[in-house]
Structures are given as C-alpha cells and as structure tokens.
Amino acid sequence: MFIKNYIKNIFSAVKSLLVGMKRTLYYFTHHKEIITQQYPDNRDTLILPERFKGEVVMPHNENNEHRCTGCTACELACPNGSIKVITKFDISPDGKKKKAIDKLVYHLELCTMCNLCVEACPSDAIKMAQTFEHSVYDRNQLTKTLNNPGSKIMDGVE
C-alpha cells in the first residue's frame, strides 16, 4: 500500500523530530544543567588538581634554601632546551670547592609541560606549579630564573 506507507513515513519522521525537540526543550527549561564556568570571575574558587602541569618552579624553604645540586639532569632530560643550568663553585667553610648553581634559567616560552625534568631530578629540587595565566606583554619576561637571588643549597642534599 503506497498511501499507507507514505502516511506512516510522515508520522515516524515527525515523531523522530519531536523526540529531538523534547530533548532541547528540556535543556531550555532546566537551567541547572548549565555547566559553564565563568572563568575570570571564579578565580578565587578555581581549584586545579595538584598534579596540574603549569610551569616549572623551584621551591625554597623559609631560609631561602633550595634542593638543587646543579647536576644538569633536568637540562639533559628536556626535549626543547627550555632549561639551562649555570653552575659556579662555592667555597665551603672548611675551604673545599663545591659545585652549586649560579642560575637555573627556565624558558617558559619553550616549555611543553612534559614533566620529564621533574621526573629526571634526583633531589626533587623542581616541581610543577599549578599556575596557568602565563600571558605577558614582553617575551623576555618568560625567561625566568628559578632560584631566588642569594639562595643556597639546603644542608644534607647531595
């Protein structure tokens, strides 16, 4: 029956369209389902997971001491050359020469947050910070020195 099929087709087609319209109407009327985060407004409540890879930082304790020995493992592990370790020789009180870092230069603009440097570090001197708002007007600001000025190595870290 041609006519019967014709009418049947029309009804099944309209039904399938109405099912979809019911779904969108549901969301139109249920505003609680909205999942948008209003980002710059929710800065205070925004919590990033502790493993989030934002940028490489070097934690210092309250005496301005870090754990970096200047072994350059991170520099070797980095695929992009975004870390450069500049070492110097400290004279310890008993007159021995000891290798230490002068500067640990970190190029944020080259970094891909692959976490390989953090993995490679034998003394847990560097870690990933949970920051992500990295935009600056001058790209020189993206080249960072990770160790604080005047900082020295923590006692007992070899």
Partner: peptide
C-alpha cells in the same frame, strides 16, 4: 585526565617501562 596526568590534551603520561605517575 587532568587529575591523574596533569594535563587535559597532551598528557605525556606513558613512558618506556610503564606510566609516569
């Protein structure tokens, strides 16, 4: 993904020998 691997799109979570974390 973000919680376990630390990234949402380019995770770099698999390393030779297992997983990174």
């Amino acid at each position: 993904m973000e919680e376990t691997c630390g990234a949402r799109l380019t995770m770099n979570y698999m390393v030779p020998g297992g997983v990174m974390m």
